[in-house]
């Protein structure tokens, strides 16, 4: 543990945070553009060519707004809420491998901030903390709509977290490891986990939608029922953080799905190792990162696509799907996976 190591990690962290913020920024823009296309209209097109600077305009606008904290709210918690939401959104990226190692000046640098052996547990741990952001914000506002929305959001998120946790167990049985890096390495043959775990992926995908409060599960901010949802009382950058956290989460869950089920930074149809020998590891890492971002981009687009296609669920339908649909399905998936793997490896038990 020397200074260089810390420095190198700090740089990596800064880069990844900046990237994820940028991606999130441009996802908002992309969202509006996609919505425009799907609804046969333009979307933002004034700021810069094709509206390319629109996200910055929005961001600066939020910064410059008046910061209002309602007098009847709990001041400390009111500020803490969006803080938690944003911080937690930015933490998950720590365990995602963005590419293989690169070598700069003789130092081998991993494009993963931390390769810890409980990576998936870390992800779940951080994601669970996200609930607090919503819950605290909604409660601190002391607004009936906010509170109700926060409750809905919290119960929705914890419900789907359960199914998510279960769905990933089948995957773990295949990989035998909780480290994301290991999981990615295992998929480098091209046989992505998606092909072994289609059902698991489907469940994970649905849960990811719900965790990010994306349509069709955007009940916490169902404006037709709850005005603006849990961040109703927020303004200025606090509101910005809530909105932003959502997009960062989207980005991270896309990355996670890519990593877990679609080979992560593995470049499809190509043997990465041999390619690395031909073009050098540094370039390979760049290509891998590009590959990963391509996958992420697809999922981000998928998020938007679904948003403008499928209408919102009713609350009871949402809970019913989560509890009565996904949880048993995930269990079923787990048992079947175990059964098949064991039969394949150990033969019939009887």
């Amino acid at each position: 543990m020397d200074l260089a190591f810390i420095l190198e990690k700090l740089v990596l962290i800064a880069v990844i945070i900046v990237i994820s913020l940028l991606v999130a920024l441009y996802t908002t823009f992309g969202e509006r553009k996609v919505a425009g296309y799907i609804q046969d209209r333009y979307g933002p097109n004034r700021a810069g060519p094709g509206g390319i600077f629109q996200p910055f305009a929005d961001g600066i606008k939020l910064f410059m707004k008046e910061d209002v904290i309602p007098s009847s709210s709990n001041r400390f918690l009111f500020i803490l809420g969006p803080g938690i939401a944003m911080t937690m959104a930015m933490l998950t990226s720590a365990v995602i491998p963005w590419g293989n190692e690169i070598t700069i000046a003789g130092r081998t640098i991993s494009l993963q901030i931390a390769d810890i052996n409980i990576g998936i547990l870390y992800v779940f741990g951080v994601v669970s903390m996200g609930v607090y952001g919503i819950m605290i914000g909604g409660w601190a506002s002391n607004n009936k709509f906010s509170l109700l929305a926060a409750l809905r959001g919290a119960s929705q998120m914890i419900s789907y977290e359960l199914a998510m946790g279960l769905s990933i167990i089948a995957l773990l049985m295949l990989t035998g490891s909780l480290s994301l890096k290991t999981i990615v390495d295992q998929q480098s043959t091209g046989w992505w986990n998606f092909f072994y775990q289609p059902l698991g992926f489907l469940i994970f995908l649905i849960c990811a939608f719900a965790e990010c409060n994306r349509t069709p599960f955007d009940l916490p901010e169902a404006e037709s029922e709850l005005n603006q949802g849990y961040h109703q009382e927020y303004s200025s950058m606090k509101l910005g953080f809530y909105l932003f956290a959502e997009y960062v989460n989207m980005f991270i869950s896309s990355a996670l799905m890519s990593t877990l089920y679609f080979g992560g930074y593995d470049i499809p149809f190509v043997n990465d190792a041999s390619m690395g020998q031909s073009i050098g590891t540094n370039w390979l890492a760049v290509l891998q990162a590009v590959s990963l971002f391509a996958k992420v981009g697809f999922f981000l687009f998928f998020f938007m696509w679904v948003r403008w296609t499928i209408p919102r669920f009713r609350y009871d339908q949402l809970m019913k799907l989560g509890w009565k649909g996904l949880i048993p399905l995930a269990l079923f998936n787990m048992v079947i996976t175990g059964l098949i793997v064991l039969i394949k490896e150990n033969g019939w038990p009887f």
Partner: peptide
């Protein structure tokens, strides 16, 4: 350790932004 670093960075960024924004508007 990197995770700790990242927590510091993220929390620092968030804290900083939240600290500044009330004075801008």
């Amino acid at each position: 350790l990197p995770i700790a670093l990242q927590i510091i960075c993220a929390a620092g960024f968030v804290g900083l932004t939240l600290g500044i924004s009330p004075f801008l508007g």
